[in-house]
Every structure is written in C-alpha cells, then in structure tokens.
Design a binder for these strands. Structure first.
Length: 606
RNA sequence: GUUUUGGUAGCUCAGUUGGAUAGAGCAACUGCCUUCUAAGCAGUAGGUCAUUGGUUCGAAUCCAAUCCAGAACACCA
C-alpha cells in the first residue's frame, strides 16, 4: 500500500488528460498535508509551471477539479499558492482500514530471499560489555530484524575478538595476582572477573611505566618526557611478559592455552547471560582465534594480480592514493598478519559460509578509515561480493564528562545499567499499583520488558551515525518520547480489545465498512498506519532503526490523542464503535511489529 | 597537516531527501481523573537552524568558504 504513489498516478493521469504531457508518478511531489491546512495529501504544482507555462494556482485548480470529478475517492480539494490540497473520502479511509486489517504482518515486504549478513556485537573477551556495546548490539539486532521485515534472508553473526595482546594482559594479571580465584569463589560474573584483572594489569603496568621513566630520566636527562613515556610503555617487564605469553599462545603452549580456555570460558558464560538479558542473538559466532591466520593467501593472490606490491624489506603494501587514501600495509616484513590481513581473509571465509549479496559490519565510526580501505581492496581484488559490503558506522555514546574511559572508571557497565533500569521500572510500577495481581515471575518479566524497552528506544531513536549523550545522573525517562510511553499505549489498547472480546463486540471489516463515520483524529491515525510499509523500506534502505522508533512513537502519540478525544464503548453508533476497535487493534499490531523490529517487547498489561 | 562526521529551543533529539508559519520530549507554567489504564491529554512560554556568500519560484536541507567540536590517518586491534 502506497497512497501517495496512487495519488501521484491519478495526478499524472490528470496531467495527461488536461495537458497531453506524459509524466511518471515519481516525478511528481505528493506529500501529507500540513496540519494547519485542510486536506490529506498535497500536490506541489510549482515544478510544473515551466513545462505547462501556467500559473501554479491555475494548475492546481484545473487538476483538482479534474480529480474530484473523475475519482470517487477524492472528496474535495483546495488550492493555496502552488499547493493543491486533496481531501480523501470517508469511504476511502474505511476501505484502507479494512485492507490493513486483512493484511497479515501489514507493513512487511514479501520474502525475496536476498541473502544479507549482519555482523555485530564483536566484543573483546578481556572486559565486560558497556554502554557503547549496547548501542552496537541493539543497532545490529534491529537492522537485522528490519531487513527481515523487508524480505531478506538474514544471517546474524558475531566475530569475537578472543585473542591478542590485550587478552594476554588479563591472563597475565590473573596468573600473577589471581590466587586461583573463580567466578564462583569471587561471586562475580565471569566477564567482570576477567575485566577486573585487565584493570589490575593496567594499574601495575602504569606503576612500572613511572619507574621506568624515572630511570630513563636519570640516564638521559635531556630527552623529551613524552618520548620517554612512549618508550617506557613498550618496555615494562609486564608488557614484555605479556608479549612473551602471546608468543607462547601462538605456539600452542599447553599451559597458556589452558589458562586462555578457562578464562575465555568464564567470559562467554558472562556474555551469554548479558546477551540473553538484552534479547539479542546470533546465527553464527566466529572466533578470531580461528580466523586470525586467514588472509595470507589473499596477500599472495594480490601480489600475483599486481594489486599489492612488495617493499625491499619484504613487507607487502597496496597503493590507494588514487582512491584518495594512502599506502596501506597488508603484511608485515616478518610475514605476520596485521588487522586488515585477517579481515580480508575473513571476508572470503564468511562468503564461502553464506554467499550473501550484502554484508553489513556494525562497527563504531572510529573504524571508518579501516573499512573504506578494506572494501576498496576487496573491490580491487575483484571480489564480486565487494559491492554489497557496507560499514554501518555509528557514533560513540558520550557522558557529560566526555568519552567513557575504562582506565578512569567512567565506563557505564551494561549489566549494571540494565539492573538499575529494572529497579526503576519496579519502583514505578509498584507506585502505580496496576499489576498487584501479577505473579512475581510475571511482574519481573514486565520490569525487564520495560527496562529494556526504555533502554533500546533511548539508544535507537537517535540516528546511528550521530554521537549521542548519556547522562547517568538523569535516569532514562519513562515519560514522553520514550519506549515505555509506546508500551503503555499498547497495553491500553490490549485492555480495550480484551473487553471487546469479552462483550463479543465485533470489529471485523463487514461491521464498519461503508457504515462508520471517521473523525479527524481517526483519519490521522489511520494515515500513519498506512505509511508503515514505506517507513520499513526507508529504515532498511538507510539501515536506520531510528525511523522505526520514530514511527512507533508517532503512532502512539496519535493513538493517545484519539483515546482521549473519543470513547470506544460509549459510542452509540455500532458501526463506528466497531471501526474504533478495529482501528485500535491495527494500531496495536503496528506498534508491536515496530517495537519488535527494534528488539523491544510490548506488554498486554502494565 | 590531510581525510571524515557533526553543529537545529536551557537540555536530549526529530525534521518524510528542495516545499506552506522549523517540530517532539524533558525542565518551567496553566487546565483536565465519579467516565475504555493519568507511565496520559490539552494549552502557555521557549529559535539569528554555527557564520557568510551562492544556486532558484522556494534552502535547516544542495554548493563554496570560514568558525567550533569529535574521530581517523601505526610493521596496534
């Protein structure tokens, strides 16, 4: 359903009849009429003045008259300057409601099976998830769901960064200071425990840097302090030991690998719990420990094809100056991989797994350059899938004090934040006392729903690429433009529908089409629902869940207005009563569908 | 320095791809629960759309320059 397109077609027909000019519907501007004017949709005539050599008002008058006379759905029209405002008839809107009601999963596109992979989350296994990860996870999950709603065959993946020097840091600190502590003995989630040792490492290492710098200063008192710090950072006993450990790990040293397995196991258990709480999931999980050696064959291939070149010291590069980028290293002189080497190999690996037409990487905008380079290289290598690759780049979540820094303890922990939101949801719900008859299990489920709904909506309503601000002092709101407001409207409708069903009041199409009367608020609401398919498409085209979040909010707001202005059960006209129930039911369905698409659940009662 | 992304109400954000008098929420103020869930509704107040110039019937939106802020530019990941 696309009402604007239909109207554009009617206008095009009118132009053909009146002026003998062939214009396609997409060349014509149709938009919803601004609320301060009379009408539902507006055709902008300015653009035609040159072609038709007429005044904009004149064109509006002529087309308006033609449409009204030749189409029963056009009830009326008025012209203000270059704007032709068209009012659609009651019967048109009632028919629209009937069509929406008869369409299962209204808004969703038919399945076409185009394969798309969405990689998101991709955590490090050396520290627990924080607020920034929440934005990533919610975004990735939502984009995947939105693509599904648009008919794609979606594969959600997670590439876990489970090896490397940073992992060795936690391992080393644990080995030195852990005293055999486990998540059980410490009473901590595994990811938090491992994160604790990452911090321990950092602290001890900082101490060593200071000591080294002091020593350097004695030896070379005239050297620049920053340079000394940099040098010290690379040479502390702890860093050297961590590097040694990494080497051992790569050689498969049994003791090191066992420790790594043990600690990663703790982290995975912790992550699983958090993922479950967040309501996100994956179809396949990749581990860097399995993929970090990939890509060397790609380097050979690139050399053979002349896409890459070798420098005298044996390192391999690609020249991307023509693309406005720089020279980029793809293999070290000692033959070992760099970050981009594995990403090249992993891209092939993923494609072999799932031959997708689109591949989306949900990764923060600090890696914009990296992905530009990666995609360019793959194109140059002639990968046919390269054209479908997309870096869904999102902005950082900042605190009023600036960036979150784990070293300064200003990180907002994901588990803590969710727990806090649940507590607030519980307090607020108990205050209102509307679910006193709930079992404690049902109540807890509601708190989780509300907490996560609030959090997801809060993070997803903002356009992905924008940096956003989170103020821990002010807890996330439950009023106004929030997830909870939307959930509240759903619960309210659910309550109406329960009552209608109990009283056996019908609300199928036959009970209202051609009989009921619609008020302005109802038409506004119906109009919004009818836009759902376009909004879903828009969200998919732009990989932007904020479009769906906004849709759910606009819809809830329109419903709230309707709910306060008009009564359902006190309406004397039976057909109109049925229509209002049907309208409510369809609103609830659209709200639920939209909220599910951004990963938020919606309650029947709250 | 180069590249890149932003700058809209006191605060947090929208703005349907160039359309009419730029919108929401929060915070402030005023009304509305004997009535389908008030986690609500209605209203008041709040703007040099960073600045300047350009493109045209028409610019928050497109182009150029400038200012401010963030990020990236490692034989790190």
């Amino acid at each position: 359903m696309n009402i604007e397109l239909n109207i554009a077609n009617l206008v095009a027909q009118g132009i053909k009849n009146l002026y003998h000019q062939e214009l396609t519907a997409t060349e014509l501007t149709i938009q919803p009429t601004k609320k301060e004017f009379e009408g539902d949709f507006t055709f902008v005539t300015f653009a035609l003045t040159k072609l038709l050599r007429k005044k904009p008002e004149e064109i509006g008058e002529e087309i308006g008259k033609f449409l009204k006379e030749n189409n029963p759905f056009i009830a009326n029209y008025n012209v203000i300057k270059g704007f032709l405002n068209l009012k659609l008839s009651q019967s048109f809107w009632l028919q629209t409601l009937a069509t929406i009601a008869a369409t299962p999963n209204f808004g969703n596109a038919a399945f076409h099976g185009t394969k798309v992979m969405v990689e998101y989350s991709s955590p490090n296994t050396n520290k627990p998830l924080h607020l920034g990860h929440l934005r990533n996870n919610f975004l990735g999950y939502a984009v995947a769901e939105i693509l599904k709603a648009n008919g794609y065959d979606v594969m959600k993946t997670n590439l876990v960064n489970d090896r490397g020097i940073h992992i060795c840091k936690s391992m080393l600190a644990y080995q030195k200071f852990g005293e055999g502590e486990t998540p059980e003995t410490a009473g901590m989630k595994g990811d938090h425990l491992v994160g604790k040792y990452y911090v321990v490492f950092d602290k001890a290492n900082k101490q060593q840097i200071q000591e080294l710098v002091a020593q350097y200063q004695q030896d070379t008192p005239n050297e620049d302090i920053e340079k000394l710090k940099e040098k010290a950072g690379k040479n502390t006993p702890l860093i050297l030991e961590a590097q040694e450990m990494l080497k051992k790990w790569e050689e498969g040293d049994a003791e090191t690998v066992d420790l790594w397995k043990k600690m990663n196991g703790w982290v995975y258990a912790g992550f699983d719990e958090t993922y479950k709480m967040m309501g996100v999931n994956f179809d396949k999980i990749y581990y860097e420990s399995n993929t970090y050696l990939l890509g060397k064959n790609v380097v050979e291939e690139g050399l053979a094809k002349g896409v890459f070149f070798k420098k005298e010291n044996g390192s391999v590069w690609i020249d991307l100056k023509e693309e406005g980028l720089d020279e980029k290293l793809v293999l070290r002189a000692d033959g070992t991989s760099v970050y981009i080497t594995q990403d090249l190999g992993t891209a092939d690996y993923k494609y072999a797994d799932f031959p997708m037409e689109k591949s989306i990487y949900v990764v923060g905008n600090e890696q914009d350059y990296h992905f530009k380079v990666l995609f360019t290289i793959l194109k140059k290598l002639g990968r046919n899938y390269a054209g479908g690759m997309y870096h869904l780049s999102y902005g950082m979540v900042e605190l009023p004090s600036g960036k979150m820094k784990s070293r300064e303890g200003t990180v907002v922990d994901a588990d803590d934040l969710i727990a806090e939101m649940m507590t607030i949801a519980e307090e607020r719900t108990k205050e209102l006392g509307k679910i006193d008859d709930f079992s404690s299990e049902d109540a807890k489920n509601l708190y989780r729903m509300l907490a996560l709904g609030a959090l997801k909506y809060y993070l997803l309503r903002v356009e992905p690429k924008k940096t956003m601000l989170f103020n821990p002092e002010e807890s996330i709101d439950f009023q106004g433009d929030t997830g909870v407001y939307i959930q509240f409207n759903h619960a309210r409708i659910a309550s109406l529908i329960r009552r209608a069903d109990l009283l056996h009041i019908p609300y199928h199409s036959e009970s209202f089409v051609a009989k009921a009367t619609l008020q302005e608020v109802e038409i506004e609401l119906l109009k919004l629902i009818s836009f759902f398919p376009q909004r879903i498409q828009e969200a998919a085209n732009e990989y932007s869940p904020s479009v769906i979040a906004d849709f759910a909010y606009q819809l809830s707001k329109a419903y709230s207005r309707f709910y306060n202005e008009l009564s359902v059960f006190n309406e004397p006209d039976e057909a109109t009563k049925s229509m209002r129930l049907a309208l409510s039911a369809e609103t609830a369905k659209a709200i639920k569908n939209a909220m599910n698409m951004i990963g938020a659940e919606v309650p029947e009662r709250m």
